[in-house]
């Protein structure tokens, strides 16, 4: 009897998705950040209503290798005509998706998008005078491997001006969208490049108050992982929310 009870407890432990640790909102930008003008009319004025993650947030969609095409993580070639390639400084971006407990997050989708080497996006609302590169789309994606690793090849994006202040420029950056194992982990962020003096001047970067949090968005130049005579490398690790331990709570969902 005792053994059976133990088995049941163990199976309950395994059969329950744990809730997420509360989000540290002080690390993120506030919704209302007037230095970034677009946030003024798009920031909720009421307080968020907090509750611990339920099954609806502890679960999330998973995507298989069937959604990933062979060139999805090669922005130099995935929009280029056969035999041609995108113009710009060739780089590799790689890193790991981890959770706050330091565990790798395997098999999750990482999507990325960026401007071309001149700072121009391929988008109908884009009006910057820098030219389009006919061989550059600016979109790619990866599925993390069993150790949470992802990597892609691209060109270093250019800085670009944008209408906020009279003379505001975005530092070179790559946008990232990351899925975790639960919908509560959903995250969109931007990666910047080590050594770029434009980072400190950017109103969007400055929506984040904590300098340590800003540093977490700056990819390190990783010459050890460069491909000689081909591409330099940058390392960018991404940390998603972690699940908390459920001591004394090993009951099936709903009990």
């Amino acid at each position: 009897m005792e053994t059976r009870g133990m088995d049941k407890r163990l199976s309950n432990l395994a059969s329950e998705a744990a809730p997420f640790m509360a989000r540290d909102r002080g690390r993120h930008p506030p919704a209302y950040a007037p230095g970034y003008k677009s946030s003024i009319l798009r920031a909720p004025g009421e307080a968020l209503v907090s509750f611990e993650s339920t099954l609806s947030e502890k679960t999330g969609p998973a995507f298989g290798h069937n959604v990933i095409g062979a060139l999805d993580n090669d922005l130099i070639h995935n929009f280029a005509k056969p035999g041609e390639s995108a113009i710009g400084e060739r780089i590799i971006v790689h890193g790991r998706v981890l959770d706050e407990n330091g565990r790798p997050v395997p098999d999750v989708l990482v999507e990325y998008w960026q401007a071309n080497a001149g700072g121009r996006y391929r988008h109908k609302r884009e009006g910057y005078l820098a030219p389009l590169d006919p061989n550059f789309g600016g979109f790619g994606r990866s599925l993390t491997d069993s150790e949470g690793r992802y990597w892609f090849r691209t060109i270093r994006p250019g800085a670009y001006p944008w209408p906020n202040g009279v003379n505001d420029w975005r530092p070179a950056h790559i946008h990232f969208s990351v899925f975790g194992s639960g919908f509560a982990q959903r995250l969109i962020t931007q990666m910047y490049f080590e050594g770029d003096p434009m980072i400190a001047q950017c109103p969007i970067v400055r929506t984040i108050a904590d300098p340590a949090a800003i540093a977490q968005l700056v990819a390190a130049l990783d010459m050890a992982n460069a491909v000689p005579m081909d591409s330099r490398a940058y390392k960018f690790d991404i940390v998603l929310r972690g699940r908390r331990s459920t001591f004394f709570e090993n009951r099936p969902e709903g009990n």
Partner: peptide
């Protein structure tokens, strides 16, 4: 011994390139 969540940044006006590329004319990739 805990890591800190990567801070969020806005998806920006060109979010469609990354999330719905076919909607904004980046066809043939996916």
């Amino acid at each position: 011994d805990r890591l800190r969540e990567t801070p969020s940044q806005t998806a920006g006006p060109y979010v469609h390139i990354g999330l719905t590329p076919n909607v904004c004319g980046i066809t043939g990739v996916t």
